[in-house]
Design a binder for these strands. Sequence first.
DNA 1: CGGTGTGAGTTGAAGCTTCAACCGTCCCGT
DNA 2: ACGGGACGGTTGAAGCTTCAACTCACACCG
Lengths: 170, 170
Amino acid sequence: MDDTRWLDRRQMAAWVRFVAVLELVPGVLDSQLRRDSGVTHFEYFVMAELSEAPAGTMRMTELAGAANATLSRLSHVVARLEGRGCVERSPCPENGRATNARLTEGGREKMRAAAPGHVATVRRHVIDVLTPEQVTQLTAISDAILGSIAPVGPMAESYRRYDEPVDESS
Amino acid sequence: MDDTRWLDRRQMAAWVRFVAVLELVPGVLDSQLRRDSGVTHFEYFVMAELSEAPAGTMRMTELAGAANATLSRLSHVVARLEGRGCVERSPCPENGRATNARLTEGGREKMRAAAPGHVATVRRHVIDVLTPEQVTQLTAISDAILGSIAPVGPMAESYRRYDEPVDESS
DNA sequence: CGGTGTGAGTTGAAGCTTCAACCGTCCCGT
DNA sequence: ACGGGACGGTTGAAGCTTCAACTCACACCG
């Protein structure tokens, strides 16, 4: 009847902590950004992706992939950002059903203002509390987890963006 | 002016993936549980904590700590669970301002039904895609991150619950 | 052409979380 | 004994995400 393979102690130890991280970290990121810059972490991340794209422009679907979000969620968020003048939408000339989102100068300015505080938060709570080896381990662990979630997802490639130009293992 | 220490390539590689994990994993947990058992992951987790407490009972504040949530969020969720007959609330006899939450038999039944599918999901997307060493690494990494978020939080201790020894008494 | 199907986005409602204000209880100093 | 805090919890509104339905455009088949 019950052939469930339950988690053993070591696995539970990892899982309860990981769940806590999943619950708490987003809140920390959000509250720092909202308090200091009036944006959510997701809004920030979306604008960050746009800011790295050529001409600050991306198709909605592509942007959704890059931001790990559904098209619906992205659509709502971009609508909000557009209302605040951070982003502009325009129909894609080549493809009548597609929409392009572009980061405005105002949006770029907001990013410049928000970035230092955000990076500091990321360091304080994640990067700087880990050893360099742990940072590497976190990359591998995240890759493994993501691989099981988005087997051949459209974004699989996009994570590699910051990988070592010259692959040298230690 | 700008003395921000930006993230280097290795750090960015870790961060973008970690952000993706933070965005995607909760959705996976939620949708499996909602589809198969009609509960959110947070509801499940709250009931799981209750189910391990003596008499299936905990004070709201204690439960909030165990579930990594604010009291407000917990209060809303427990109200929902109470409406569905999974949990019961009663004023704490010893302390007039405290409230006890207790898992009902119905709630316990729901847990029994939901647990196998949930554990399978946790394995499929997290535990089983990692090597045993990575599971250990994830524990340490999560601990480090949590330590920077809840410096001396009330829960700091509760994560240790599943640590090594078999010294569990009830 | 017309028809069916799929891709790209948008929208509105419903649900959950967050935020701030609030109420009752307990503790403590005077 | 009493008035101010602090503690424990609840509540309602506002905000964000999810879900399902819907629109419009391209594509391909006959």
